[in-house]
Design a protein around this nucleic acid. Structure first.
Lengths: 238, 238
DNA sequence: CGAGGGTTTGAAGTGCATCAAATAGTGTGG
DNA sequence: CCACACTATTTGATGCACTTCAAACCCTCG
């Protein structure tokens, strides 16, 4: 079954075989190239999507063309599903930013199942609660962290929190894209990363960042954050 | 019954009398003075709260004491309820900012009911979806609107969208508090409001703002917003 | 009337954006 | 394998928006 991947994500834990059969009946696995727009903000939302591989950017844009990046997702994440609670319209636009394999699924099946299967409704609630918490943090960071600290925080989220000592981090996508994800200009990103390097002793080489002392990075970045120390992982993995 | 107010809010539509009886059995109606801290971020979350009257500020603060205001709520809103999906810990702190009458209720009853009553779970999902959408907007505004535009947007949300012509708006609380709600300093608020006045022809007198031409205000404020024009109401009323 | 908080104003500094241009890196066809 | 085109990234110079610190002003309330 092509929907097998879905069986392992937390959101669908506790859903019966009938549900997966129904999904399978309408599922399509597709490949998309960088630049492809999956849907745009406000469009009627008939489908949700599961990312098997690749990268997807969620964003909104104003009349004058300025973009606000909502999130950038990768393998294992779903998107477009929340629209079933919001007038069946997508609350953001989605664009492929790295060639992706994506499973296309009907929202109607999900909606029906949520209405009838309380377990799924509860999973969905936990999921949404985690998203809200993440968004809360996002708001906090935008208002009280400076550019360098936001980058540091971003790097910390890329490490597996467990590793205490030295780590090597690879930026998952373009620096320009990271910049937009963090709500700053590419030029600012470049300068702020250089400043972070000077302040915390990290070494930057292209998309590779080496950190000898995670704690020092944490002290600098998390100074302006309400999170417990050290920073809890903010990723909403599925 | 003191919980009668709860019967009319959208979240609890479809809940049976047994649920309200159970709530009633543990409900307390209390009065609190300005300055009272209801709970702090991270504390075990045993209760949720319904505001009968007054104003409550939700916020988080960093080690160095900087505050990030999450939201400011008034009569008809509930808070502290999302913690039941988040390790039973409050995700923010709550402080009374205007003397309030508040109904104190046990989270356990709510949790049990959500687990057993699918209708309530679905209501909760809609509610959370609306909150997420609001937060999305919040993030967008912080990153692409300037101070004056954020104030204009805030004023527009205080009007009842219907009224097309001239309106008189009263700021619901301190200018200092409005400033923090919008993520700016009181000084910046003062100057940005003056700028907004010059740009849109509104008249400001203490806490009273008179708008002759809502559209002009809307054009100025919503230029940097992805919302449909004019701005949809963002309040998450209950 | 005087104390104290809220609000405004002034002056100076900081951080980020913007515009412009140089540099590095990548993929292309010859 | 090189030259070229194109994009990503960095660097420099400048301006604007917001913050910060300081002080004045205003308003309310005892």
């Amino acid at each position: 079954m092509i929907v097998n991947n879905l069986k392992h994500i937390a959101l669908f834990k506790g859903c019966g075989p009938a549900f997966f059969d129904e999904l399978e009946a309408h599922a399509q696995l597709q490949s998309y190239q960088k630049g492809k727009i999956m849907f745009i903000n406000g469009e009627p939302a008939e489908r949700f999507y599961f990312i098997k591989s690749g990268w997807v950017k969620l964003f909104r844009e104003t009349l004058d063309g300025t973009q606000a990046v909502v999130d950038i997702l990768t393998a294992g994440h779903i998107f477009g599903e929340t629209s079933i609670f919001e007038d069946d319209a997508y609350p953001y636009s989605a664009e492929i930013v790295g060639s992706s394999q994506i499973m296309v699924l009907p929202n109607s099946v999900l909606k029906t199942e949520i209405e009838n299967n309380n377990k799924l409704a509860l999973n969905m609630l936990s999921f949404m609660a985690r998203c809200r918490r993440q968004q809360d943090k996002e708001i906090e960071h935008l208002s009280i962290q400076n550019a360098s600290q936001r980058i540091g925080c971003f790097l910390l989220r890329l490490t597996n929190q467990e590793s205490a000592g030295a780590v090597t981090i690879r930026l998952p996508y373009d620096k320009t894209l990271v910049a937009s994800r963090l709500g700053m200009q590419p030029e600012t990103f470049s300068r702020a990363l250089a400043k972070l390097r000077d302040k915390t002793g990290i070494r930057v080489n292209g998309a590779t960042v080496e950190v000898d002392n995670l704690e020092q990075l944490s002290i600098y970045s998390c100074a302006a954050c309400s999170s417990e120390f050290p920073c809890k992982n903010l990723m909403v993995a599925e």
